[in-house]
Write a protein that binds this DNA or RNA. Structure first.
Lengths: 211, 211
DNA sequence: GAGCGATGTTACTGTCCGGTAACATCGGAC
DNA sequence: GTCCGATGTTACCGGACAGTAACATCGCTC
């Protein structure tokens, strides 16, 4: 049983687990360190022995989210070795799961909303992660044979970010419900006519895949 | 000078102006009522004579944002009477301006991130506004001769929401920089092949307009 | 069992916050 | 001038918050 494992897990891990859950549900400024320590089955003193400050805990929390995203990319590549097309489909499926899991959107994007100080150490983590996600996706699109891979990656990022944030304010029947279909259509458009993009002006034909 | 007018403006209006500025820049939980009252050139007591609570002030603040969005729609229709195509272009231009003004995204979406309580009175304002924006845009698309107007409206909403939130975490050189080009491409795709959408499976050809 | 590092407990500081009470002041209406 | 409503001023409450100090306890190693 994971419960028994959780009891013997070292305090730092338990604190991070609790922080992740609470920060995700209530936001960074909506949770105090006392609540996190209590949810972790420990106390504030131990928390501050492992994390210099609440801000440092936030950074560690966001790094954990980034790390999980890395794991997802690793799984995508492992489960579809040497098949970029399948990897792109897998990315799409997992993106849809991200949107559907709950209505709280992306932890990184939400953190960016709350961390209004420009110099906050967590902002670097957020910015690097978002740039990394975009670049990974662009490389994947490129491997999948799409020439305008950067434009497609940016478009898919916009759709995904939009869907995740839109679900928070417009519900699961709002625009976010069209994410999968729209993303598939866009991908097919880029596949069939590689010259599509932002600076060209020509015709292209599209094939729509069955969902 | 607007300063002189501001001095004689009634306290309630000054409070709302100050609240809007501070909430926008620092987030709802990042600003106290004292700071708002002081920025409005008044005090907490007067603030509480005009607003029952901070939550009610937040609701009024968000209603102000909604009201300004309504004004924008009114301007779009006034400046391009009986020309849905021009209105759609105008919408796109104003959407791009929304993204470019600053890096703080949509006040409504940001508020939704911070207001984690499901029953918060402000959530209704947010949800109604987002649904209204989507419906207005869908009707505009329909008037512009697009048959799959709902799907296009949802797609444009996703792109816009994505661009606004993405600018906060990925900067102005990130995916949000592709909003205009992508949105124009999508619109042209829907114009040229009305059968494109989420449930069909057929071929289509696309024309890309010069930006 | 002695020693030691990690953890738990309690109590505390200082600050900020949302919200309220009591009273002073101002300005216009009559 | 008198009245009255709106506004300003000061002080306060109770609670939450981030962060710290001092001390107790546990569990492991040797």
């Amino acid at each position: 049983m994971p419960d028994e494992l959780a009891v013997i897990a070292p305090p730092r891990a338990r604190i991070l687990t609790a922080a992740r859950d609470l920060f995700h549900r209530h936001g960074l400024r909506g949770v105090g360190v006392d609540a996190i320590a209590e949810a972790a089955g420990t106390n504030k003193m131990t928390l501050y022995r492992h994390f210099e400050s609440k801000d440092e805990l936030i950074v560690a929390y966001l790094r954990g989210v980034v790390s999980e995203a890395d794991d997802i990319w690793r799984d995508i590549e492992r489960e579809n070795p040497d098949d970029a097309q399948a990897q792109l489909r897998s990315w799409l499926k997992r993106a849809e799961e991200c949107i559907s899991v709950d209505g709280r959107g992306c932890d990184l994007a939400n953190a960016a909303v709350e961390l209004t100080e420009t110099g906050h150490p967590a902002r670097r983590v957020i910015e690097e992660m978002k740039a990394d996600q975009r670049d990974r996706l662009a490389r994947l699109c490129r491997r999948a044979g799409i020439t305008k891979s950067e434009v497609l990656a940016d478009t898919l990022m916009l759709l995904l970010e939009g869907a995740r944030v839109s679900r928070q304010s417009a519900g699961c029947n709002g625009p976010s419900s069209k994410f999968i279909a729209t993303a598939q259509t866009v991908i097919e458009t880029f596949k069939s006519k590689p010259r599509m993009g932002c600076k060209t002006s020509d015709k292209k034909s599209v094939h729509k895949r069955e969902s």
